[in-house]
Amino acid sequence: MRPGEPPRPSRTVEVADNLPGVVAVRDSKDPAGPALAFAPGAWRAFVTHFTDRP
């Protein structure tokens, strides 16, 4: 961010990977809002898709 530039909205998610058999993901700005639940293998595939890009 440059001086005098307005702040940008945050695009942060929280990932809970300490639950048995599920990975929960939610918007960190709305912790009481909805969460997405993924099977661990599906979450791994999703993350791998974006981290293995050049």
Score class of each variant (00 low, 15 high):
Arg2Cys: 08
Arg2His: 14
Arg2Glu: 15
Arg2Ile: 12
Arg2Phe: 14
Pro3Gly: 13
Gly4Lys: 06
Glu5Pro: 10
Pro6Gln: 06
Pro6Trp: 06
Pro6Met: 05
Pro7Asn: 10
Pro7Lys: 10
Pro7Leu: 12
Pro7Thr: 11
Pro7Gly: 11
Pro7Tyr: 07
Pro9Met: 07
Ser10Val: 14
Arg11Ile: 02
Thr12Glu: 14
Val13Gly: 05
Val13Leu: 13
Val13Met: 09
Glu14Met: 09
Glu14Cys: 09
Val15Lys: 02
Val15Asp: 00
Val15Pro: 04
Ala16Glu: 14
Ala16Asp: 15
Ala16Arg: 15
Asp17Ser: 13
Asp17Gln: 11
Asp17Met: 09
Asp17Trp: 11
Asp17Cys: 13
Asn18Asp: 15
Asn18Pro: 01
Asn18Ala: 13
Leu19Asp: 11
Pro20Ser: 07
Pro20Met: 06
Gly21Ser: 07
Gly21His: 04
Gly21Leu: 08
Val22Ala: 11
Val22Ile: 15
Val22Gly: 05
Val23Leu: 04
Val23Asp: 03
Ala24Ser: 14
Ala24Gln: 15
Arg26Leu: 08
Arg26Asp: 05
Asp27Met: 02
Asp27Lys: 01
Asp27Tyr: 00
Asp27Ile: 01
Asp27Ser: 02
Asp27His: 02
Asp27Pro: 08
Ser28Thr: 08
Lys29Glu: 13
Lys29Ser: 14
Lys29Pro: 05
Asp30Val: 10
Asp30Trp: 01
Asp30Gly: 00
Pro31Arg: 07
Pro31Lys: 02
Ala32Cys: 02
Gly33Thr: 03
Gly33Met: 01
Pro34Phe: 06
Ala35Gly: 08
Ala35Cys: 09
Ala35Met: 09
Leu36Ala: 11
Leu36Glu: 03
Leu36Val: 02
Ala37Gly: 12
Ala37Asp: 05
Ala37Tyr: 10
Phe38Leu: 05
Phe38Trp: 08
Phe38Ile: 05
Phe38Glu: 01
Pro40Ile: 07
Gly41Cys: 02
Gly41Trp: 03
Gly41Lys: 10
Ala42Leu: 05
Ala42Lys: 03
Ala42Cys: 02
Trp43Tyr: 12
Arg44Asn: 10
Arg44Phe: 09
Ala45Ile: 04
Ala45Met: 04
Ala45Phe: 01
Ala45Leu: 07
Ala45Trp: 00
Phe46Ser: 09
Phe46Asp: 00
Phe46Pro: 03
Phe46Cys: 10
Val47Trp: 01
Val47Ser: 00
Val47His: 00
Thr48Gly: 13
Thr48Pro: 02
Thr48Trp: 09
Thr48Phe: 09
His49Leu: 12
Phe50Cys: 03
Phe50His: 14
Thr51Trp: 06
Thr51Tyr: 06
Thr51Gln: 07
Thr51Glu: 13
Thr51His: 09
Asp52Tyr: 01
Asp52Arg: 14
Arg53Thr: 15
Arg53Cys: 08
Pro54Ile: 01
Pro54Cys: 04
